[in-house]
């Protein structure tokens, strides 16, 4: 089997990995912001619930969370799930896990904003939501971008964990090929895939960071 043939066999897995990556980001970035609001809520009960959620998401293995999301509906509720549910379970598991991490990043950014920005906004008559959307959030994004980049790069590699619930993503396919052909080459190809993927991510994030460098 040539390297090209291996790659083409791996292509399906690559596509699944990319899907997990993109879907997770699309949902976890906004969800994380919502969770960070709950974490900073003045309502003690909401704050306590969200705090607990974040501590569970960050304190237990993602692999375990994926299992719970995948097997939970049947073991807990007796709902029979189809084969399609595997990928959906991966989407859900990754999203709720990454949202917790993003929430803490948003929170650090929002809380690092100087009080003067809020006071100036108030004096100029901005409503609370206007202050957040027009004044605070654009500055928060710039502040938290390096931390977000870190998480996004980890996410690329974490997508391989979906194999634990038998999602045929890149890593699962490579593993199967490696054992059937007793060859390391599929692993090398897989490693190359993750590396190049992350290279693209890093370049993309660097570009965004540069675009935001027009102010200090």
């Amino acid at each position: 089997m040539t390297f090209i043939q291996i790659l083409s066999q791996l292509a399906g897995g690559m596509w699944v990995s990319i899907q997990i990556f993109v879907v997770t980001l699309i949902f976890s970035l906004p969800l994380g912001l919502l969770i960070s609001f709950g974490r900073m809520s003045k309502n003690r009960i909401i704050q306590a619930i969200v705090k607990f959620y974040i501590s569970v998401m960050r304190g237990t293995p993602l692999m375990l969370q994926l299992m719970v999301v995948y097997f939970g509906p049947y073991y807990l509720l007796g709902i029979k799930v189809g084969n399609d549910y595997r990928l959906i379970a991966a989407f859900i598991g990754f999203t709720i896990n990454y949202a917790a991490y993003f929430a803490e990043i948003y929170r650090s950014g929002i809380q690092s904003m100087p009080a003067g920005q809020y006071e100036a906004s108030r004096l100029l008559g901005y409503s609370k939501s206007q202050t957040f959307v027009r004044i605070v959030f654009p500055q928060v994004i710039k502040r938290i971008l390096p931390s977000i980049t870190n998480e996004v790069i980890t996410l690329v590699k974490d997508t391989s964990l979906a194999f634990t619930i038998s999602v045929l993503e890149m890593f699962a396919v490579a593993k199967a090929m490696a054992s059937s052909q007793t060859s390391l080459i599929p692993f090398v190809a897989a490693g190359l895939f993750y590396y190049v993927f992350n290279l693209v991510v890093a370049v993309g994030m660097e570009y965004i960071e540069k675009r935001m460098n027009y102010y200090e």
């Binding site: 100087p114 003067g116 920005q117 100036a120 004044i135 500055q139």
Partner: peptide
């Protein structure tokens, strides 16, 4: 109100 430290919006 004009503040001592301006508090302009940097972005």
């Amino acid at each position: 109100l004009v503040f001592q430290n301006f508090h302009l919006f940097p972005h």
